[in-house]
Amino acid sequence: MAGIIDDTDGQWIALSGLTISISLVLVAILVNEAAITGYYSSYAALEFPKEKIREITAQTQESAKNAAQLAWNYSGGLHATNESVLNNFTALLSNYSAQMNTIYAVHGETVNITLSKAVFNSSHSIDIIWLNISYDDGTTRYTSEPEIIEVKQ
């Protein structure tokens, strides 16, 4: 054993070996961390219902505008009254909401769309619609209360 203790040659080689080994361990840890980060970010991107919320609000805005026009036409156009237009619009919106609810319930999601307020202009057509939109998939809950829609825009 005296030979080992007294022999002080090759210390630089021993030191470089140690440095390289520690570097490899650090690189491995880094790769592992990057993989875990990628896994969680991909999982989050798949799970968060960003597109669902967008499509529900966009479709509801478009449908509400068209339903307002349809309700006005069906109520007699220029001969319509605010009450008849509102009744027809409420019926259309209720039907739309019920269908959306059934379609999204199949995915395990709840969608609820209700009318909060409608503002009429002098020709008895709806100018501004205030809707309450809510979405819930058990993990993410989204509400837009009110969602203000300008029909003439």
Binding site: G3, D7, D9, G10, A14, G17, L18
Partner: peptide
């Protein structure tokens, strides 16, 4: 009995 440290270094690496 020379280079025993080198052998140990190799084993460690």
């Amino acid at each position: 009995d020379k280079a025993q440290i080198h052998t140990l270094e190799g084993l460690f690496a």
